[in-house]
């Protein structure tokens, strides 16, 4: 792993993003959808953190709240020493160039009435004092960097294929020399053969420009390829945050284990790991279960899980898990669970 002494580029502390629910004629505030409910992590410069989970687990909301595309309900998001969550609008605007986003749907995130060159140049119009010629030169430079032919500069988004549109989105994100890029499912809408092209491009750019990525995806095999560390989210909280190889070799949280076992290995000749089929669906984030949010589907659930919410804690060097199987018992309940569990963590 990287030097732990260096200051992280991004540090998120207990981030919460609640969306209020209003009901009735008087639009009374009757509850909250707790899309993100206390998420903490940090990302080192040059690192790629993978953020995985199923739909509705809050992974995209984390990405958006990080850039303050949503106003976070609580918590701190420190990027390069400044707390994004509390910056005033003008300071936030000056901060924007350092952090950018690549969106899932390249069709919806590009203005259909703007040419490719106008799309890529737009952030520079907003944030820099470059002249039109300088901007055009930079647009060409960026198009070269992401592998788009310069002849395409005056074409419109609909004239491009999905993979090419994603390259346009990446070029736009790079326009202001950002340090930190959030990739929100950047390959989910692309065909398999095109996915690899885009992922390779993202990796090349990271090497060349020293970028730091938060790579949000539900594709666990692609995350294994691109990420250094991986955070697994479930119902608005991080279930496990571990270095990539450790997580894929042996997931500690029961949800991470089930999630990895559910991925279909594209090789019928290889013995697969024991498949854990979870029962039921993800509970609603407006009404999460008491105690551990995974307790309704967890195959290893025990009494304490339904009462007390487990906190994310370091259970092995560099590995953080929010599960009672790994936390020392607070007192009365099931003392037998602990030793059994340490064993599991060490062996198998």
């Amino acid at each position: 792993m990287r030097d732990t002494m260096t200051e992280p580029l991004v540090r998120v502390d207990d981030l919460k993003m609640h969306f209020p629910i209003y009901t009735g004629v008087f639009r009374r505030h009757t509850g909250d959808v707790k899309a993100v409910d206390g998420v903490s992590f940090s990302i080192q410069p040059g690192e790629t953190l993978g953020l995985v989970g199923e739909s509705g687990c809050g992974k995209s909301t984390v990405g958006r709240a990080l850039l303050r595309l949503y106003e976070p309900t609580a918590g701190r998001v420190v990027i390069e020493g400044e707390d994004i969550a509390t910056l005033d609008p003008e300071a936030l605007r000056r901060k924007r160039p350092t952090m950018q986003m690549v969106f899932q749907d390249p069709q919806a995130s590009l203005n259909p009435r703007m040419t490719l060159s106008a799309i890529i140049a737009e952030p520079m119009v907003e944030h820099t004092s470059l002249t039109a010629e300088e901007r055009q030169a930079r647009v060409f430079e960026l198009m070269d960097a992401v592998g788009l032919n310069r002849r395409f500069a005056n074409r419109y988004p609909h004239e491009f294929s999905g993979g090419q549109r994603q390259r346009i989105g990446i070029a736009r994100a790079l326009a202001l020399n950002p340090k930190f890029i959030i990739c929100d499912e950047p390959i989910a809408a692309l065909d398999v053969s095109i996915q690899a092209q885009v992922v390779n491009l993202l990796e090349d750019l990271q090497d060349k420009l020293g970028l730091t990525y938060l790579f949000i995806s539900h594709d666990l095999s692609m995350v294994r390829h691109i990420a250094d560390r991986v955070a697994v989210m479930y119902l608005g909280r991080i279930a496990e945050l571990s270095p990539r190889d450790a997580l894929y070799a042996q997931p500690l949280h029961p949800y991470a284990e089930a999630l990895l076992s559910a991925v279909n290995e594209p090789d019928p000749n290889r013995a697969r790991r024991e498949r854990i089929i979870l029962k039921g669906d993800v509970p609603s984030p407006a009404n999460p279960p008491k105690g551990c949010s995974f307790c309704t589907r967890c195959p290893k659930v025990f009494a304490r899980c339904r009462v007390e919410r487990p906190e994310l804690a370091e259970v092995q060097p560099g590995r953080f898990v929010a599960c009672h199987l790994y936390t020392p018992d607070a007192g009365q309940t099931g003392a037998s669970g602990v030793p059994e569990h340490n064993q599991q963590g060490a062996s198998s």
């Binding site: 398999v192 290995e265 090789d267």
Partner: peptide
Amino acid sequence: TIPSITGHREARLQV
């Protein structure tokens, strides 16, 4: 082109 979830991890994806 598909990265594996259990097998060898390639440094670079084939395209």
